[in-house]
Amino acid sequence: MALTDKELKEIAYLARINVNQNIFPSLKKELQDILALFDELNNADTSDIEAMSHPLDLSQPTREDQVTEVNEREKLQKNAPLVKSGLFLVPKVIDGED
């Protein structure tokens, strides 16, 4: 299946990765080569086969909903690129007056 320019732009936006125009054609070719690898699966008969999402077919355990962690905001925010008054700073996301 060929990957179109439009599709590549869409998935790049979905993945929130900017793709520089300089590398767009070579990236498209690389991704197409990888996608071509998947054609082989079309030959496999999987009509009565259940999907396998866990390598050992185990399900997730549950536990009582208890608080196990203490609040460590300051410690955890030490790794944040931009913080003010305990808040993560990002560019404005709501339109309107400042």
Partner: peptide, 10 residues
């Protein structure tokens, strides 16, 4: 499809 084929291998 890949998750189904994974079971074939298993």
């Amino acid at each position: 499809k890949a998750q189904k084929c994974r079971r074939l291998v298993a």
